[in-house]
Design a protein around this nucleic acid. Structure first.
Lengths: 215, 215
DNA sequence: CGACAGTCTGACCAAACGGTCAAGTTCAGG
DNA sequence: CCTGAACTTGACCGTTTGGTCAGACTGTCG
C-alpha cells in the first residue's frame, strides 16, 4: 500500500505534483531494485534515476523499505491475476496457452517487475512472507481445485496440480529473470518480440503435449 | 579460480590450516551470498558465520569480489556437467529423466549454490558474462545438435532445442531458488526428500508427455 | 495579496562498510 | 630450541549509506 502520510487530496485536482513524482520514483526504483536487489540499491541511485534530489525521495517515501514495499505492491498487482484464466468451464488447453502467453507478455514489457519479485523470493521473501502464506497459498489451493476438476472430467492427465502450477511459473519467469543467460545462449543483444513468440510456442507445446513422439 | 597468493605447499602436509579455513570461508560465503546477494553480503557477516575474525577473511581472500569469484567457480563446477547426459546414442526419455533427477538432487542438497548462481544471473551476470558467452553458449549449441539428432531419428517431437533446454533449466532451478514460495504453497516448513521426489516425477512426466489426454 | 500547506534541497550526521596494518602467536623443519 | 614463514587479530581508516533537518520556494484558495 502506497504510504500513510499527509495525502492532500482535499478539494479537487490536488496532489498532482505528488502523484507525478511518486510514480517517477516508483518507476526508477523498480529498475534499480531489479538491477541490484534491495540491499544493493541505494536511495541516491534511485533518486538520480528519477532526476530528483535524494532528500526529495525521502520526502515522498520515508524509508527505502517503504519505497520497496510500494514497488512490490505494484508488481504483485501485475503478477497476481494471470491465474484467473483457470476456471472449470474453460478448455484447459486454451486457458493454459493464454496463461503462458499472458505471463510472457508481461515478462517482455515489464521485465523489471519480474526481477524485483524474483529477487524478493530468492532472498527469502522477507517482505512478502505473509502474502505468500495467505493470499498466494489460498489462490493456488483454489486453482488446484479447478485443475483436479479438469482431470476428473478427463481433459487433463492426472498431474499434480501444485507442481503443475510451479512448472508454469518457472518456465514463464525464466525469460525475464534469466534474460542475460537466455540472450547469451541465443546470441541476441536484446530479446525481441519474435524471441518471445518462439518461447511462447515452445512452452505451450511442451506443456500441453510433451516432447516425446507417440502413438 | 581460488587465489593467486603465497601458497605454501612446500614439503608435504603443509597448508592444512589454509585449506581448512578457506573451505570454511567458502561455505559460509555461499550461504551469505545466497541469502543476501553480492552487494548485500558483508565480509563481516561471512567471517562471523565462519567463526573467524574479519581480518582473517581478508588474509585468505584479498577482496570480497575475489571470495565471491571463488564461490561462483565452485558453483559452476557443480552446475555445468548435468547436461552431459545428453548424447546421441542414448534414449532421450532416459537422458531427460536423469537430467531432471540430477538437477533436482543438487537443488535439494546444495540449494545455496543454486541461489548464488541465480542471483548472479538475475542481476546481469557481471562476473559471469564471459562464461555465459563462451563456455555455456558453446555447450548448449553442442547439446542442441544432439537434440536435433533425436528429433531427426523420430524419437522426439520437433521442439526448439534451445527453448527446450531453457525449460529444463527453469523447472529444475525453481525448487531451489523459489523454495520459500514453494514451501508456502505446499504448506511445508522445509522441503524434504519426498517433496523433491514428487517434483521430479511431476516435471519428468510433464516434459515427456505433456498434460493433455490423448489418443 | 496574504497565508498556509505542500514541495524542494544543500548540508549534515551516525552507522556500517570494505579493506589495511602492525604487532603478535603458532607451527614445522633443521 | 631456534628460525622464519604462515597464520591471527584488535584497532584503525576513508568512503558510502540511509536518513534528517532547517530553511527556502511555490502554487492555490479565500
Amino acid at each position: 500500500m502506497p504510504s500513510p502520510r499527509p495525502r492532500n487530496i482535499k478539494a479537487n485536482g490536488r496532489g498532482r505534483i505528488r502523484e507525478s513524482n511518486e510514480s517517477r520514483l516508483l518507476k526508477a526504483a523498480e529498475t534499480v531494485f531489479a538491477e541490484r536487489g534491495f540491499r544493493g540499491a541505494t536511495t541516491a541511485a534511485i533518486a538520480a534515476r528519477a532526476k530528483l534530489p535524494k532528500a526529495n525521495l525521502h520526502y515522498y517515501f520515508r524509508t527505502k523499505a517503504e519505497l520497496y514495499r510500494a514497488v512490490l505492491a505494484n508488481v504483485l498487482e501485475l503478477w497476481l491475476d494471470e491465474l484467473d484464466r483457470f476456471t472449470p468451464d474453460r478448455e484447459p488447453s486454451d486457458a493454459i496457452a493464454e496463461y503462458v502467453a499472458g505471463k510472457l507478455y508481461w515478462s517482455r514489457v515489464r521485465p523489471n517487475a519480474s526481477k524485483v519479485f524474483a529477487n524478493e523470493i530468492l532472498h527469502g521473501a522477507p517482505f512478502l512472507e505473509s502474502y505468500l502464506a495467505r493470499d498466494l497459498r489460498q489462490r493456488v489451493e483454489q486453482k488446484a481445485k479447478v485443475i483436479r476438476q479438469w482431470i476428473r472430467s478427463g481433459k487433463l492427465r492426472p498431474v499434480d496440480p501444485k507442481h503443475f502450477i510451479f512448472q508454469l511459473w518457472a518456465s514463464t519467469q525464466h525469460y525475464a529473470d534469466f534474460d542475460v543467460q537466455v540472450r547469451a545462449v541465443l546470441g541476441r543483444r536484446k530479446l525481441g518480440e519474435r524471441d518471445f513468440a518462439t518461447a511462447t510456442a515452445s512452452i505451450t507445446a511442451l506443456i500441453l503435449d510433451g516432447c516425446l513422439t507417440r502413438c
